[in-house]
Design a binder for these strands. Structure first.
Lengths: 159, 159
DNA sequence: CCTTATTCGTCAAGATACTTGACTATATAA
DNA sequence: TTATATAGTCAAGTATCTTGACGAATAAGG
């Protein structure tokens, strides 16, 4: 059997949070699996979310830190790993000798292309499942929730 | 400053996966923060997802493993931690001397109540943001995505 | 009853993704 | 110049997960 969900269990989670979590891990798993199948065996969730913020012409490490919302050390470690894999490289910023610009290597650029392709495919698959309006509605609902949380939770880091 | 998202950046993630991830972490952060504010300082994401599967009258460890979709050792470690916090306790199953029933302690029951209250509050907040139909549509869309992934990714454990 | 396999749980060790604290080098402000 | 803030690194520790190996109880087959 696939799972024994059909049994009349005493309780099974059913709130938005749980569904959000399920859908999120489904997407992540699908993405990482597809990347790995495409030969990018070094891909993981955390690395994907970092890579998603590195622009084509490189991005300052400080900007990555700001965008990702995790500690600078965590970001650094992620970059270290990706640098070790030959996906990213660090360049120095001519205008600020402290700063480092993180950019894709050749390998990184091809991974980026692959990643974009896969994201489009997944988006397409979701569009087929939900219909174009359904997908659009989903995305706008998700955006609304995320931004409301930002407003509401206050006490962000750097506050 | 709160964040500098408004700048016209070269690229900023915008696919479903990213929004899913944002909304998901918003929910998780809100839940955990509310629990901690309510005095349950031991709460974490992973613990919350385990506790969501422990029924009021106790649940066999093997069932938790099956439901959570992670390794039995991971589940065990989570239970160990919660047992150490005095939230859960393990009882032996009279009908199977190998098995262990995981149940809430007194402290666990009060946390459970609090958690349910918070989940309802969050759901309510989301309902206000999206409207009743919007929330319902969101939930059903999420469910569709999660179950389609299950079909597609196959190779579940327990095969 | 007596093997043999299966299932339930534990112990141990290791990987990944984070955290905080301490510190260097550079830049900026007073 | 001196103080302070910012960019990044190094080191150590925590949380969550993994695989492998194992003991103990149950189930299946003779």
């Amino acid at each position: 059997m696939v799972k024994s969900l059909d049994k009349k269990d005493e309780d099974w989670p059913d709130h938005v949070g749980w569904r959000l979590s399920q859908a999120n891990s489904a997407w992540r798993a699908a993405f990482v699996e597809a990347m790995r199948a495409a030969g990018h065996g070094w891909m993981t969730d955390a690395r994907a979310s970092l890579l998603g913020h590195v622009g084509r012409r490189g991005t300052p490490q400080s900007v990555l830190i700001e965008r990702m919302g995790i500690s600078k050390q965590a970001v650094q470690q992620l970059i270290d790993g990706l640098e070790g894999e030959g996906v990213l490289r660090r360049m120095s910023d001519p205008r600020d000798k402290r700063a480092r610009i993180v950019a894709h290597t050749q390998k990184g650029r091809s991974a980026l292309q692959e990643a974009n392709r896969i994201k489009l495919e997944l988006e397409e698959r979701y569009r087929n499942l939900l219909g174009p309006e359904g997908l659009a509605a989903l995305k706008s609902a998700l955006a609304a929730l995320a931004s409301s949380a930002n407003d509401d939770i206050r006490g962000d880091r750097e506050g």
